[in-house]
Design a protein around this nucleic acid. Structure first.
Lengths: 207, 207
DNA sequence: GTCTATACACTGATAGAC
DNA sequence: GTCTATCAGTGTATAGAC
C-alpha cells in the first residue's frame, strides 16, 4: 500500500465519517462523500465495494473510539467512587471531541438493532466475558462494607451513562429551550457537568 | 369531510407514523406507506402534497403527545418532590406506550436541529413564556426554605429527563448488553425505574 | 376520492479506457 | 489507481381517466 493509496483511503474515510454521521446511512449520498473526498464516485466502489460496506467501516471506527477507555476504567482496580470520576470526566471529554457519534449510533440503533450489538460483543464480551459481573461484584462488596447504600448495579450503570450521554444526544433541544440556543453557554454547561454529575451520583448512593 | 375520507386519512397517518418512526424521514418510502395503508401511492400525494409535508404532520403528532402532560405537571402548584414523582411516573408510562418516539425525535434532531425547536416554541413558549423561570423560582425557594441543597435548575432538569428518556432511546444496546436481550426482563426493569429514578434524584438533592 | 400510467431525477453500482 | 460513461433500478411526484 503506497502513500497515494493511503492518502485516498484516509480522505474517503474522513469524508464518509462526516456525511454518514450527519445524515445517517439512508440520508447519505455516495456522490456527496466523493465530492467531499475530492475524488470520483467510482473510486468509492473501488475501495469499498458498496455503500453498506463503507458505512460499516465508519460505524465500527466510531464505536471503537469509545470502547477501549470504557474497558480500561471498568477493569481497573480503583474503588467505585474513583471509577465514577474517571468515567464521567473521560467520557464527557471524549463526547465533546466527537459530539456527533452518540446520535449517529442511536440513529443506526433504530434502523438495525442487532448491528451494534454484534460489534459490541465482538469488542467487549470476548475480551472480558464477565465485565458486568465484575462491576456488580465490586459494587455489592462496597455495599457490604457500608460504603454504599444497597443499589441495583444495572440501574446505576444505566443512570451514569444516561447522565453523561443524553446531554450530547439531545443537545439541540436542550440548548434551544434552556440556553436560548447559545452554543458557548452550552459548552460551559457541559464542562460544569463533570463535577455536577459526579456529585449528583455520589450523593445519591453514598451512605 | 365524509367518513370514507376520514378513514383514509387515518389509515395514511397510522401507516406513515409506523414507517417514519422506524426508518426516519430519509429511510422511509412512500410506496411502503401506501402499501401499509392499503392504498395507492398517488393517494398519498392527494392528501399530503409531498413526503416532507406528510412527515411534518407525523412528527408534529409525535411531539404533541408529550407536551400537554409536561406543561400540566410543570405548571401545577405541587411541591417539587411531588412534581418529580408525577413527571417520572407519567413519562415512563407515556414512553412505554410510545417507545419509538424518542429515537424518532432524536434522529430528526440530527437531520434538522431547527425543526423541533420551532414546534416546541410554538407549543410551549407561547403558552407559557416563563416556563423555565417558574420552575427555577420554585426550586430556589425550596432551597431557601432548607428543603433542598443548593442546586442548578438546568442541570437538575437535564438529569431528570436524561434518566427517564435515555433508557428508552438506548434500549437495544442496554437490553442486549445487560439483559441478554430479554425483552420481558427489560420491561420490568423499566417499571422498576419509576421508583428507582425518583429516589435516586431525591436522595441526591434533599438536605 | 381513487385508480393507472407515466414523467423525470437521482441513486448505487459497473464496464472499460488510460 | 483513477477517470468517463452509462446502466438498471427506484424515488417522488404528476396527469388524466373514472
Amino acid at each position: 500500500m503506497d502513500n497515494q493509496q493511503k492518502d485516498t483511503e484516509i480522505k474517503i474515510l474522513d469524508a464518509a465519517k462526516e456525511v454518514f454521521q450527519q445524515k445517517g446511512m439512508t440520508g447519505a449520498r455516495m456522490q456527496e462523500i466523493a465530492d467531499k473526498a475530492g475524488i470520483n464516485k467510482s473510486l468509492l466502489h473501488y475501495y469499498y465495494r458498496s455503500k453498506e460496506k463503507l458505512f460499516e467501516k465508519v460505524f465500527n471506527m466510531a464505536v471503537s473510539i469509545f470502547i477501549p477507555k470504557m474497558l480500561e476504567i471498568m477493569l481497573s482496580e480503583k474503588p467505585l467512587f474513583e471509577k465514577l470520576e474517571f468515567f464521567i470526566n473521560n467520557y464527557i471529554d471524549l463526547l465533546t471531541k466527537h459530539p456527533y457519534i452518540p446520535g449517529f449510533v442511536i440513529n443506526e440503533l433504530n434502523r438495525n438493532p442487532q448491528f451494534l450489538l454484534n460489534i459490541f460483543e465482538k469488542n467487549v464480551q470476548i475480551k472480558e466475558k464477565k465485565l458486568f459481573e465484575r462491576v456488580d461484584v465490586q459494587i455489592q462488596e462496597e455495599v457490604k462494607k457500608g460504603i454504599l447504600n444497597p443499589i441495583d448495579t444495572r440501574h446505576l450503570i444505566t443512570n451514569v451513562i444516561a447522565l453523561v450521554v443524553f446531554p450530547m444526544v439531545a443537545r439541540p433541544i436542550i440548548q434551544g429551550v434552556m440556553f436560548e440556543n447559545d452554543k458557548k453557554q452550552y459548552d460551559s454547561f457541559l464542562k460544569e457537568r463533570k463535577a455536577f454529575v459526579l456529585s449528583f451520583v455520589i450523593n445519591s448512593i453514598k451512605v
